[in-house]
Design a protein around this nucleic acid. Structure first.
Lengths: 353, 353
DNA sequence: TTGTACGCGTTATCAG
DNA sequence: CTGATAACGCGTACAA
């Protein structure tokens, strides 16, 4: 009596359609796939019956015979981080074109969880893996990927060359920021950030800072460097505190511009300067990194480095799609260019108008 | 010669294991599932062989016989909107407990796309649907859901009672905000927002504003109401412009507090006040809605209404999981309570203390 | 305690 | 132009 969800009224199958149309299942299958010719008349008849009975092919059964599921497994660290969801959005826009479905799971930065997820997706017959972000350690990734499926890494720095990767060159990007600031006439350029052991990322950013100073014949002054050894779990507050404590202790700023590892840190720094009555950008220029959503809502609006995340997602997805469809792909790293978005926190020190 | 991805070296099957272990597939199957007793000795032997050969059951095949895929289809409007990803996170934390996998697709607010996605997931043998956010119109939702699977709506206002829903009561929430402001001694309370035709949502918020005024014996002054008829596509800029134009034209503010439809609008309003040299909260109090990530980075830090999004996601998922496992669930709406998060943009007008 | 054999819904192969 | 029938990999009556 009570309608139980488990008693799904059995969906109509290809067999039902065949019977109703008075043809064989083979013909129905081909009428649908176009794999071989079916007389127009019977085809229309079949299509009509399919429509009337709302038949939908069972992709599970199809996957079983085809040994492919039109499904891509996506592993990312955190669904709440807009960096990853932007990449995801880009990837989805590409995979949907080829009728692939995304199966997404998040690891929340836990290697064991990641291995689990991979394992689960592996049994799910995903046709390939897209790794978005995460640790540079790919050991378990390797280990878990027993079915030897194609995989592509996006925004994930890994030491080995086993997988194609889509990245930005952090080092180069920050070096270019130094160029830009030097071009604006800044001589004393600072850096604030933290050393990220797990993602290569920050190392490269700080290296890029050093590169940039070097290239522009600027001297490295340790008074301008605010580098935390380990992870900042709350980047906004921690960067705020670092600079606020520095300024509150009566020390003066030697730099005229500050490069921040990312936008959160930039926003925290900005707040510290404002609280200590330092005018941004008149007294101190700031530039963030990432162009995250909220970077545009600060006042003054944050200048930052824009990263083409969606494009990177699309590119990674396309790479994977190619691999799945058997096209050879080079196991190379594709680097995307960043661009400097100068909003309101950078000032030119040159007085040639 | 060239290793083609399509030639996946055929994964080891249950049959292979059976042969290697010298038992039947049935025994292997039961050794794994525990459905019936298997002699400890043979069980260990089987497990060992499974391990050695890295056998993983093929869930596709399993789904075919079981007519269930341990998969939940999730439909949401936009993966870049933190509101939805927070709900998603909550849902995932719940579904993972029962070993369900989430298949996520985004509609980008397009009804046709939504119908498509539902259709795709339908053929995918999803065991149920979770609709997160989106239009209040559920017509196509209904139409597409031909397999009659259980579905739950989270943060999606729909007219009909066909589905269980997990919501907040916008009307009540805003009414409570008026209470709160009245309690702080505010008499002239304003509202800024827009009328959202597609989600019931805003109607209710504005209604809640009227309710609140009424309940607190405050008068509605149209000078305090900034209501746009249609959608604000760029809420921050539009709200900024509305208030900035108002103030620039020399008009004065009659209100002492402003309720904003959401945080983006609150942030735009805040900026407009700051630019026009109105001190927040000394001269004008502001409260947002949503407690979105960037609401905490403004200065002063935005007071707002906090919505338990993750919990709502978990609750919705649990509801769905119950439905899938055959438990009867009431087709009711569960309302979650909001709470007022008073940070720095609200001032008390009472001088008792 | 274990095995045989069929069915799940589809596509591929081979026939005609 | 169209059909039978055998896979695909697994679960599970039914049997022993």
């Amino acid at each position: 009596m009570k309608k139980n969800f488990k008693n799904k009224k059995s969906p109509v199958t290809i067999k039902d359609i065949a019977e109703l149309a008075g043809v064989s299942v083979t013909t129905v299958s081909h009428a649908l796939s176009g794999e071989r010719y079916v007389k127009e008349e019977t085809k229309q008849k079949i299509l009509k019956i399919i429509n009337e009975n709302k038949y939908r092919p069972n992709v599970i059964a199809r996957s079983l015979t085809k040994k492919a599921s039109k499904t891509i497994g996506v592993i990312l660290p955190d669904l709440n981080n807009p960096i990853y969801t932007k990449i995801l959005k880009g990837a989805e826009s590409e995979t949907v074109k080829d009728d692939y479905i995304l199966v997404i799971s998040s690891t929340y930065y836990n290697a064991a969880t990641e291995a689990d997820q991979i394992d689960r997706l592996n049994t799910l017959f995903a046709d390939g893996f897209l790794f978005i972000g995460g640790s540079k350690d790919t050991g378990h990734l390797e280990k878990a990927n027993i079915r030897n499926l194609p995989a592509v890494l996006v925004f994930r720095w890994a030491a080995e060359d086993k997988y194609p990767k889509v990245l930005i060159d952090n080092r180069k990007a920050i070096s270019q920021v130094v160029d830009y600031l030097a071009g604006l006439g800044h001589k004393n350029i600072g850096y604030i950030g933290w050393i990220d052991e797990s993602t290569v990322d920050s190392d490269n950013k700080y290296s890029g800072y050093l590169d940039g100073l070097n290239k522009n014949n600027l001297i490295l002054n340790e008074k301008n460097v605010f580098l935390k050894k380990d992870i900042m779990t709350n980047e906004y507050d921690e960067s705020y505190n670092i600079l606020n404590n520095y300024l509150k202790s009566g020390k003066k700023l030697y730099m005229s511009a500050l490069i921040c590892k990312n936008d959160n840190i930039a926003l925290g720094s900005l707040e510290a300067f404002k609280v200590n009555n330092l005018k941004v950008p008149q007294e101190i220029s700031i530039i963030g990194f990432g162009n995250t959503d909220h970077s545009q809502y600060s006042s003054p609006r944050l200048s930052t480095v824009s990263v083409p995340l969606e494009q990177m997602g699309s590119a990674g997805a396309r790479l994977l799609l190619n691999a799945i469809s058997g096209k050879k792909i080079k196991k190379e790293t594709i680097y995307f260019d960043t661009s400097i978005l100068n909003r309101e926190t950078l000032i030119s020190l040159k007085n040639d108008t």
